[in-house]
Design a protein around this nucleic acid. Structure first.
Lengths: 248, 248
DNA sequence: CAGTGGTCTAGACCACGCT
DNA sequence: GCGTGGTCTAGACCACTGG
């Protein structure tokens, strides 16, 4: 026996899928009127649709049908493994060049810090927990809208005395790691799917009910030593991650 | 000025992170008592924590702190590209062998069907929209709990007259595609992060607020023709996806 | 059985977007 | 200023879980 709010949600869902609401949903008072229920019930129905990522609400403006147009995110392209071409250009790193190629305007804010290694970072970089590591925190924007965060962690001795330690938005053709004398030859990418923390929601200005991918890339040099770990937080409504397996 | 429910949520969140509740959260009446608010307010606070994936509720049993122990999912391992070893064994396909290696008990339910190609499938398999394609729908279980769905789509002529068309759980050492005479040499993997639909939530018995990854793998044969598209739905609380880039 | 959350009602006041 | 949703209250009845 479906509840009232469930039946309302089902009804609205099929209307949405049928294209009845190109943009705005009926207002709460309208739905109260239409279904003859109390406001709480209407809101429960909308919350159910929101939890499926179908609708979104903006205070003062109302409920609307959610639109997605994710940018393609190709982790393969951002590194230089020999068989990939160097996509960097003057004033752009590999990511920015890729965004520009997709007709979008990239931007980023960079912060440099020295922090104690978290358990995750310590394990990836093969250092002791609590040991000092260098982190370059980047907030990437596309068309002036927050797009993703990308925080790169380096063992102290890898970063020391290299351009990695320059605060600000350093662009080095060929990449920071090569400049630092640590060419990476392989990577391990770990992807977890989860809901964002309160802090991530704020930092990325995420709408409610937007899941994220946590992409942890650890790069190894020729000697097999981990020299960098990048933690990228990718909001689901803005990304499609693409890998090419077995391609030459 | 944070709202009452927000302050309650903040309070409980730090308690959770501090390990105050190894398992169960206080009941709603207890929280009403503790914070001197109405039930709706307490429930709003819990809903906020639930939306971060921190807590979960089971009717009749109460709220509890959510636990995660994702299985590692390595898309690289499930295909035979020459430089990967064949992990299949008698009675197990590549995925089942992998699950067994992680000390879990795999299982799967298979359904065979012929359906009209959706726009997504038509584009991936390079067939016309609405054209008939063969689909093997699998629901994979680990320790008897739903783990993921994996639906493989084949162009009609690829599947015709091959073991692909056998209904039921067919195991072929070396893989179905090789048996069908279509060795795949490369793959395109597209990963989207989103909230599950109502149907997916039911099929996978997902707890509330569990995001999923939609992993779309399209395989190409030597001639560059797409011969299979697999759509895998991976619940975030049960998976960690791992790729190895540039590894030999 | 008592205790848990799930749903629903009918009010109220507030902050914010728009025009 | 009017219309939107955001928050909160104080009640009620129901369904499910547990011992």
């Amino acid at each position: 026996m479906p509840s009232k709010s469930e039946r309302i949600a089902d009804d609205l869902r099929s209307e949405i899928n049928g294209g009845v609401y190109p943009k705005h949903m009926p207002s709460e008072p309208e739905l109260i009127e239409r279904y003859g229920v109390s406001r709480g019930t209407v809101r429960a129905a909308m919350a159910a649709l929101a939890s499926e990522g179908l609708v979104i609400v903006e205070p003062g403006r109302g409920w609307s049908v959610r639109r997605y147009d994710p940018l393609v995110w190709e982790p393969d392209k951002f590194e230089h493994l020999g068989h990939r071409r160097d996509t960097t250009e003057a004033g752009h790193d590999a990511w920015q060049a890729e965004a520009a190629a997709q007709q979008r305007t990239p931007g980023q804010q960079v912060e440099l810090a020295i922090v104690k290694a978290s358990p995750l970072i310590a394990e990836r970089l093969n250092v002791s927990e609590g040991e000092s590591v260098v982190v370059r925190k980047r907030l990437r924007l596309v068309d002036s809208v927050p797009y993703q965060t990308a925080d790169s962690y380096y063992p102290m001795d890898v970063a020391q005395g290299t351009p990695i330690m320059d605060p600000g938005d350093v662009i080095i053709p060929g990449g920071l790691m090569t400049a630092a004398g640590h060419r990476q030859v392989r990577f391990t990418d770990e992807i977890s799917i989860r809901m964002p923390s309160k802090e991530e929601t704020a930092r990325l200005s995420l709408p409610a009910m937007t899941p994220v991918a946590e992409h942890v890339r650890t790069g190894f040099n020729e000697a097999g030593r981990p020299v960098r770990t990048i933690i990228t937080i990718l909001p689901g409504d803005r990304h499609k991650i693409v890998y090419y397996v077995g391609a030459e």
